[in-house]
């Protein structure tokens, strides 16, 4: 969504048209909720945190200077609020111990995923994403769903651009490993048929 379009509604809200905030909520609620889900893992908690994020953003809107995109600012608040919530509940972030150096077979995996029913395909991908660490899942989500640049992602997660680049590179390889492991029976079956 373009910066100008968001700014138009932000200006309207700041001029007293509270209803215009609904446009911004509807535009970003899915992504905010998805980010919260990736970190908190429960629907109820993600729902509560996402709602609070929008309330907080509404309160902080006068302080939004437009130095970064509204979405980047919003996602940063969502990310930090989710981490705060996790800390308050005495929970900590997962670390992934998946070996990223093993080999994988992209063509075979791609063929099998193509042949799968949409539902089954989505479950496999979602489960694979769930095995990464929370921070890596957030980085992958922002990169592939929102197509944010490395610089924008670094602003959201508060890491240096190079650190994001390295994490993205490693997470991609880990995801390939996880998918390879999950699809192994189908891959072997496929070779058997040949």
């Amino acid at each position: 969504m373009s910066l100008d379009q968001d700014q138009h509604y932000i200006d309207k809200v700041l001029n007293g048209n509270v209803g215009s905030f609904a446009v911004l909520i509807d535009r970003y609620k899915h992504m905010v909720y998805t980010l919260a889900m990736k970190i908190l893992n429960t629907k109820e908690e993600a729902e509560e945190v996402s709602q609070d994020v929008f309330v907080k953003v509404y309160q902080m809107l006068p302080s939004f200077k437009g130095d970064s995109k509204f979405s980047t600012w919003l996602y940063r608040i969502a990310y930090n609020r989710s981490l705060d919530y996790l800390k308050k509940r005495g929970r900590s972030l997962r670390t992934s111990s998946i070996d990223a150096d093993k080999d994988y077979y992209l063509d075979s995996m791609d063929n099998i995923l193509d042949q799968m029913q949409r539902e089954e395909h989505n479950v496999i991908i979602k489960n694979a994403l769930g095995e990464l660490s929370e921070v890596d899942t957030v980085i992958i989500t922002l990169h592939y769903f929102e197509e944010l640049s490395l610089k924008e992602i670094s602003k959201v997660v508060g890491l240096k651009v190079n650190a994001v680049k390295v994490r993205l590179f490693r997470s991609r390889k880990q995801l390939a490993q996880i998918l390879q492991h999950k699809l192994e029976p189908e891959i072997i079956e496929g070779y058997g048929r040949k």
Binding site: Y33, S50, L106, I125, K126, I140, Y144
Partner: peptide, 18 residues
Amino acid sequence: FLKKNIKEIRLEEPSSNF
């Protein structure tokens, strides 16, 4: 490969009265 396969899944859906 990931761009194609991840993009196919939808974002999580919050409650209808969010």
